[in-house]
Amino acid sequence: MKSTLNSIISKQKWLPIALANMVFAALLAIVSPVFLTLSNFQSMLIQSGVTAIMAIGMTFIIITAGIDISMGAILFFCSALFAQLLQDTQSYWLAFSAAIACATLLGTINGVLVTRFKISPLITTLATYSIYRGMAIHLTGAQNIPVPREMGFLGNGKLFGLPVPIILLIVIFILGVYLLNHTRLGLYAKAIGSSARSANESNLPVTKVTVAVYAIGGMVTGISALILLARVGGLQSGIGIGIEFTVIAAVILGGTKLTGGSGTIVGSVFGAFFLVLIDNGLNLVNASPYIYDIVRGSVLLAAVAVDRLSAKRQESRLIQIKKQRLEHNHATN
């Protein structure tokens, strides 16, 4: 029984975070009567939407053993471009398509730089982080730009009775899961993260796939940017600062390893939920908003520590098995 549970967890790496979500939610439900209301759930889902959508893109990147520090800057650039274009042209379609296209392009540039120059993804995207953020402020002249009220539809509006951000999250989630599990791109991404050497020896399209995952990361960041912009009501200078770390935290909480090779979209989305759940819990106990960071950091540490401990236990179990096999060998000899 115990061993089957272990094997399920080792295959479905998202299960622990899903369980953590449930346990924590149950706890909050006991503590607070407000928690279990539909509106609270909806608002939590909406809150987690931005991070969750970006985490889906980040999962692909981390699965190839890469990382994208520039996501927050892409988010900011995209918001700036959209707000500016909308203000200048009053055309939603132009602003929408330009913003998403641009976000994809910025992601693609990351991918091209990573594959072409072979500098570590961390440094590469740290450099583009600075470049993209500078470009965005340049674009708007460091102005705050409000967006029209009807933009709020994207942030709070409803379609078929469901809030728009949630619909977007569900669509991107389904697409992401399909892409990772049923297409060559997804399998190749895992392969590259598992062993870059083998991927090259097996003639896999390493460059194409790597560029593609960064492009996907850019594109979903663009979508997140518009949702966030709609919710905030306008461009502000602080948008997107540090969000890449929240996104990476969500992915790691979801059971994906920075070393690449494996990971699940479900886990990352649950990871994003969990972060919001924590915020919600802190909110319910009226904690200072400044404490959120401390709790998030501690949760992240706890998660990796637990992961490390279970890996160690797995190791010692393997050693035990080996020992038994050795005894057995000698007994039969």
């Binding site: 770390f245 935290a249 950091g297 992240l300 540490l301």
Partner: peptide, 12 residues
């Protein structure tokens, strides 16, 4: 990851 977490904690 470790220093990312302590980064958050220190900021908090």
């Amino acid at each position: 990851i470790t220093t990312m977490a302590t980064q958050l904690i220190a900021r908090g």
